[in-house]
């Protein structure tokens, strides 16, 4: 990963965390000041989706052309994606508690996100219960692709079919207003980009660390 990408990610996050609190936001009922949580909560989901997609991409590449390096990438992208997802779900619960009245509100998007997390937790369980390294990599890649594909209708199709409390679906005029607000976009899009970049950075770091670890084990074995 190039250094300027990391610096860009840092700058974006610094900008987002200042502007996200200081900049003017639309005045909306119910949400009031908590509308700012959009800058910090939603990017977690974007980051999670992005990292999981990367994980699936590397899983496909692994199946076409197996190598332990690609398997490491699949695992680490899933790992960091899960961290983002867990942060997203907790921030979402806190926010929902104040605006919708209860931490778990049965919202389709919330349920979809929880299931996405379940898929990857099951993925880790699967990895844990296979001993042979090559077999573990192959079977978990297959499950990764299969489960991700089964999840897509759940996350992207069903929330659009039913009424959701999230903006962009169902009848929530007060919530839909900020969808088109340019002032919020100025902070929101940098926030998404910044968190994705930071997620990529952490992932690349973890991959490098794993690579070092495994070369050390190889050297020890040779001795």
């Amino acid at each position: 990963m190039k250094n300027w990408v990391k610096i860009l990610g840092i700058c974006l996050l610094l900008y987002v965390h200042t502007a996200g609190l200081l900049a003017e936001v639309p005045r909306l009922n119910i949400l009031n000041e908590t509308v700012r949580a959009l800058y910090f909560h939603v990017p977690m989901w974007f980051g999670m989706t992005f990292l999981f997609t990367m994980s699936v991409y590397y899983a496909v590449r692994y199946l076409r052309n197996p190598s332990p390096e690609l398997d490491r990438k699949v695992l680490e992208y899933a790992n960091v994606g899960t961290v983002f997802g867990i942060l997203g779900i907790f921030t979402g619960m806190l926010w929902a508690n104040y605006t919708w009245g209860s931490p778990w509100h049965g919202d389709p998007k919330q349920n979809g996100a929880a299931i996405a997390l379940l898929v990857y937790l099951a993925y880790f369980v699967l990895r844990g219960s296979l001993d042979n390294q090559e077999q573990r990599a192959r079977l978990s890649a297959v499950y990764n692709i299969f489960a991700f594909a089964a999840m897509i209708p759940l996350i992207f199709v069903i929330p659009r079919m039913t009424s959701s409390m999230h903006p962009g679906s169902g009848g929530n005029p007060g919530f839909n207003a900020y969808e088109l607000d340019y002032r919020m976009r100025m902070v929101f899009y940098p926030a998404v980009a910044g968190w994705i970049l930071i997620g990529l950075w952490i992932t690349s770091l973890r991959i490098r660390l794993k690579t070092v670890e495994e070369t050390i084990i190889d050297i020890e074995d040779e001795k």
Partner: peptide, 19 residues
């Protein structure tokens, strides 16, 4: 960044309760 900031903070309207 600074100019963006000024634009963003410039507007204000007060009908809904905020901090």
């Amino acid at each position: 960044l600074l100019s963006l900031f000024i634009i963003l903070t410039a507007q204000a309207q007060a009908d809904v309760e905020m901090a």
